[in-house]
Design a protein around this nucleic acid. Structure first.
Lengths: 234, 234
DNA sequence: GTTTTAATGTGTATTTTTAACACATTATTG
DNA sequence: CAATAATGTGTTAAAAATACACATTAAAAC
């Protein structure tokens, strides 16, 4: 690797000093189950936070893009490809990690829990209700809160919650997701009206099955309406 | 610094490899002058981008918070303290910097150009109209675009543009800022109505001076209405 | 099989917000 | 003192968001 001393405007520090910072990625992987918003967490095995929940993360490799690192973590941990992933913010307090200077970039992701099988016992991986998480290892609770806030803003204008649902879903399920994420109750009639107006849904002319009540109609996400915009942001 | 090998889940890389990434901060410093939105740029002196404009940035020191690094850059470059600063995004493509693996976190800042004197000749620092910037060194045009987009969203709901103006300003000046940032024309009556409704302004009962037309009333930002929320995000 | 239950499915009226639009007023300039 | 070029103001129309009640359907209970 080339030297980059041209960076150091002040001269007190050598390049070696600047390369004593490590960069990691942490993924807030949201899922939806039992009418609750959940997040994938793992038992922390660092002594300072032993036994506490932490987010899924890893160091960024020198030869991989930042975005790629988050995809890698997601793929390795959930086996899922092609999931929704969005960068949220970078957390860089000096003492945020007991093992040294580690700056982390947070991503949030939306997956359908049913789409994959976790090796739960192996890794102490666990889908935890977001509402019930009071504290986490490191600054991960802060990261989680920030990502949840971003998610709440995001779903107001952008068709992303479909990633939390199976391909076919009822309007009730869709509304449940919104209520779980926003942590509030919504009016069913206005909710339905809004979604039909937005033209985000395609009526499948099928009905729910195995529900203990009148089955609702099934819909799928109108993906064709949203050409995949590939951001070249990072 | 302690070892952090516990991070490496995969074992192919040693800690030394992970510490071959450097982290920098780049500031998109916006200003407002001559009815135009401007950005503070500096002539690039790296051979690959010689002579092109670049943003103001520097490597993050091992012992400084990420946010502090951006404040430091701003202070060093503009002499300004206590300015508006917001983290936007981190850019981490492997080859974004010719000198090596440098990941950068972008901040945008809003300053009142008149509040400080730049040593323009010294540093080849320059306030450049945002609209006229077609290309920049590195991925800085991309960073600028991303920050401008964020700024546009931000000003819709949050009282931040006051940072671009002097303490006392007329409604016309305020509207000009919005028009410059959003790159569109706004209806004067609706604009005024909206601002009076929002209760963001305090009427100073003073008039503009030295304007070649009927002077407008002067206002100041209703700072008391917005308790300083100190985010603990990074 | 009839009743009960618990959900789905639908329309209208009200309020709020946003957008469109025109003329009188005032200080400066010539 | 007239012309100019800006400031300052109110109403109307359209659109969006909100509040709200009853009929329908399939399963479950009896």
């Amino acid at each position: 690797m080339k030297q980059i001393s041209r960076f150091s405007h002040f001269g007190e520090l050598s390049d070696k000093d600047y390369f004593r910072i490590a960069l990691s990625v942490d993924c807030v992987i949201f899922g939806f189950e039992d009418d609750e918003l959940k997040v994938l967490v793992i038992k922390c095995n660092i002594k300072e936070y032993k036994g506490m929940w932490s987010l899924l993360g890893d160091l960024v490799r020198p030869d991989e893009d930042l975005d790629s690192a988050s995809y890698r973590i997601l793929k390795d941990r959930t086996g899922l490809d092609d999931v929704y992933l969005e960068q949220v913010q970078t957390f860089g307090k000096v003492n945020r990690h007991p093992a040294g200077r580690v700056i982390t970039t947070a991503y949030f992701s939306l997956v359908n829990i049913k789409d994959h099988q976790l090796k739960l016992s192996d890794n102490e991986l666990h889908w935890h209700p977001v509402k019930e998480i009071a504290e986490m290892a490191f600054d991960h609770k802060n990261i989680l809160d920030t990502c949840l806030e971003r998610l709440r803003e995001k779903i107001q204008d952008h068709p992303v919650v479909f990633n939390l649902l199976p391909k076919k879903f009822s309007l009730r399920e869709l509304q449940s997701v919104y209520e779980a994420v926003l942590n509030c109750e919504l009016d069913r009639r206005n909710f339905r009206k809004k979604f039909f107006m937005m033209d985000w849904l395609i009526d499948l002319n099928e009905l729910e099955e195995d529900v203990p009540h009148r089955p609702g109609k099934l819909y799928k996400f109108n993906a064709a309406k949203f050409a995949k915009k590939t951001k070249k942001v990072s």
